[in-house]
Amino acid sequence: MREPTHTYTSAKVVLELLQRRISHPRIKEVIDEVEALQSLGPNHILMVTGPTGVGKTTLAHSLLTRILKSHADAMQQDAGLIPVLLIEARATSEAEFNWKLFYADILEQLEVTPGMPAGVEYGVDPHTNRVYRPSGRSKNTAAGLRKKVERALQHRGVKVLMIDEGGHFTNVSEVRMKRQTDALKSLSNCAGCQIILFGSYDILSISRLSAQLARRIKEIHFARYRSDSIDDTLVFERVLQRIEHDAQGFFGGLLLENAKLLHANTLGCVGTLMDVVRGFASRAQHADAVTQDLLERCLLTEGQHIAILEEIRQGELRFESEFVKSGKARKVA
């Protein structure tokens, strides 16, 4: 039985380090594909989808940073320019998707700060320099907020509207889902901005609702690192090496020793891996030691593993034709 490994770096420091988003090759691959398709313009919705825990939120933030850097000069010249927004499609206790909340979240991000030019045309108070929300019933409807959002996006020069947790648009009937997706497509057209929707495999049903949506939605697969691929296995191990390095010896090489176990248990999803590692570090902090037993307690349970694997099987089948065309048809593992 492995002896407890006493740590060289405090668990508190390691837990802080583990809150940082970790970049890896799959993120770069997806960003390259997104950038290649952005030239399609506002008439298309880019839909980035992958397994639960693959790292879609990390990808969204990486893309956000990249777009902001590409517009840095223009933003210096125009203090009111906001080239990209990242919004979460928030879930509520309501049966329907809350469009008023969604529009309000967008308007909140488009509020200006002192010194920035006010866009009076779309409801910015010239005295306070903040987005003006009238109290009248007619302008606080979803339709009224929608019009305000369109104008705000136009005047702020928003080129890309990224929406995380896109699955919250799909928790309705197909009729309502189509209506909601049409509303997003219309917002993209009217505001002149590209929409990028992030979500798990459940959002794939959106592009099959009609021929028009099938043509206008471009699916981008954010794939996991598969255990039946030598290249994927090597990359996953390099991710573990990076975590071990950043943790400055805290894990004592235990993560790399358990590379196969971690790869199989987390199904090659880096986001899930980071959840397991953070839980491990937290338990190690409490126990003041790093042990095999503590690591194994942090793994996905059999029930969790089965549920995630089933979602992956169904989702990856949608992209199976791509594997076949490239001569890389594989068994899901």
Rank of each mutant, 00 (worst) to 15 (best):
S138D: 11
T58I: 09
L15Q: 14
G55T: 08
S227L: 03
R2M: 12
K325M: 10
R297E: 15
A223C: 04
G167Q: 14
L197I: 11
L234M: 08
T141C: 07
V131S: 02
T58H: 07
F319V: 08
K139P: 00
A36D: 12
I87P: 09
P25E: 03
Q314E: 14
E33T: 11
D288S: 14
K185D: 06
G315T: 03
L68E: 14
L64W: 08
Q77Y: 01
V84G: 11
L59W: 03
G315M: 05
H168E: 09
N140S: 10
I27M: 14
S207L: 05
L37K: 12
F280D: 07
C298L: 01
M1C: 03
A329K: 11
W99H: 09
V324C: 00
I27C: 06
V30T: 14
L110W: 06
S326P: 00
A11G: 14
F198E: 05
N258F: 01
R215N: 15
G315P: 13
D105S: 15
L64P: 01
K12R: 12
E296R: 14
E219V: 01
S70A: 13
V120Y: 08
V84T: 12
P51H: 04
D228F: 00
K218P: 00
G41A: 09
R242W: 00
T233S: 15
H6I: 15
V290N: 07
T49S: 15
Q314N: 05
E94C: 00
A142R: 10
V332W: 12
I67F: 08
C269L: 10
Q154E: 12
G80A: 15
P83V: 07
I196F: 05
F169Q: 09
L204P: 00
K178C: 03
G55Y: 03
S227R: 12
C269K: 11
I22N: 04
T52N: 12
I312G: 06
M177R: 15
V48K: 07
A104Q: 13
R133V: 13
N98T: 08
S188R: 09
Q248D: 15
A214G: 12
P134S: 11
S135H: 04
D105R: 14
L256R: 14
G123L: 06
E237I: 03
S62I: 00
H44Q: 10
R318F: 07
L317H: 09
G41F: 09
I306K: 12
T272Y: 01
E244I: 11
V324E: 02
G303I: 05
R133F: 13
V112W: 00
L255C: 07
M177D: 06
